[in-house]
Amino acid sequence: MTKGLLTTAVGSYPKPDYLTQARNRLARREIGQEELRELERKATEEWVRFQEEIGMDILVDGEMYRGDMVTYFSENMEGWAISGLVRSYGNRYYRKPVATGPVRRKGPITLEWWRYTQGLTKKPVKGMLTGPYTMADWSFNEHYPTREAFVLDLARAVHEEALDLEKAGARYIQIDEPAVSTRPEEMELAVKALGIVTKGLSAYTITHICYGDFAAVFDGLLRLPVDNLDLEMTNSNYNLLGLFRERKGKLKKDLSMGVLDVHSHLIETVDQVKKGIRLGLEVFAPERLYIDPDCGLKTREVEEAKAKLRVMATAVREVKQELGIE
C-alpha cells in the first residue's frame, strides 16, 4: 500500500437500476428474498471491481443491501418495531424505528456482507456501522426512561458487532455518527457511547459526521475516541479546515477529508479536487490525511458517482506524483 493520502469512500453507493427495481418487486412480493440477495451480491461485486479499477485503497461494500442507515440495524436486532409514515421533507416519507424493549443484537448484523465483500478483493474492506448516538437520536423510544440509557445500550450492541468484524479480520471499522453535531448539549453522551463501541479494538477506527455547526462542537469531536474523523469539506468550501489549522501540532487524530460534493450533479474537476487536497496537506501530513467523498453517494446516479470517484482518484494520484510519495 502507498504511504499517505489513502483513498476511501464514506459508505453508500447508488444502487443500479436492476437492484432498485428488484427491491420494489420484493415489496410487491413478485420475487423472493433469495432472488434479491443474488442481485445485491452482483451489485456489490460490481462496485468492488470499480473501486479496484480506480485504485482505491480502502474499499466499502457500497451498502447495496441497506435501505436507511438506522432502519437496517434496527431490523436486524431485538427490541425494535417500525413506525407509521413520518415526513422527512417535501413529499418524502419514511418509517422510523421504534425501541419497544431492550435493544440487543440477535447475532452478527453486518458480518456476512463484510465477509462476502472481503472475499472478493485483496484490498482491505471497511466494516461499516451506524453509531449508537445516531441510532437513538433518529428513532422513537418507547422503552428507555432516558436518552442516555437508550444510547448506552445501543453502544454495547454496536461494540459486539465491531468485535465480530475485527475477529473476522476487518482492519478498518467506521462508526457513523452524523447526528452528534446537531446537539452540542449531548456531546458528552456521544463521546461516552463511542468509547464503549471502540473499547479494546485494535482495528483502525473512523467516525463520519456531517450536517452540523462544527465550530460549536469541535472540541467534542476531537474527544471522540476514534483514530480518524471523517468530515465533509467541499460543502463548506474547505472552511472547516480552519478549525484544524488553529490546533495544528496538537491534533491526535487523522482526518478523512471529503472532496466530492455528494448533493450536486456537477462533477468536480481534477484541479478543484487537487486544490482541496493541497489545502488539507497544509494542516495534515500525507500519512494522516485520507481522501474521500463528503458523504455517502447513494443519492447520485451510478454514472455520476463513478465519474466523481474517478476524478478523486486522478487528483490523488497526481498530487502524490507531485509530492513524490508514490
Partner: peptide, 29 residues
C-alpha cells in the same frame, strides 16, 4: 415547512436547497 409557507409569498425571498431543521432528522428548503 415552517419557513417556505411564508417565504414563498413574501417579496425578496427565493427558495434554495434542503437543510436540516434544528436537531430533528427532518429537512426544509
Amino acid at each position: 415547512d415552517g419557513q417556505t409557507y411564508f417565504a414563498r409569498r413574501i417579496g425578496g425571498f427565493s427558495i434554495n436547497g434542503l437543510i436540516r431543521y434544528f436537531n430533528n432528522n427532518t429537512y426544509f428548503r
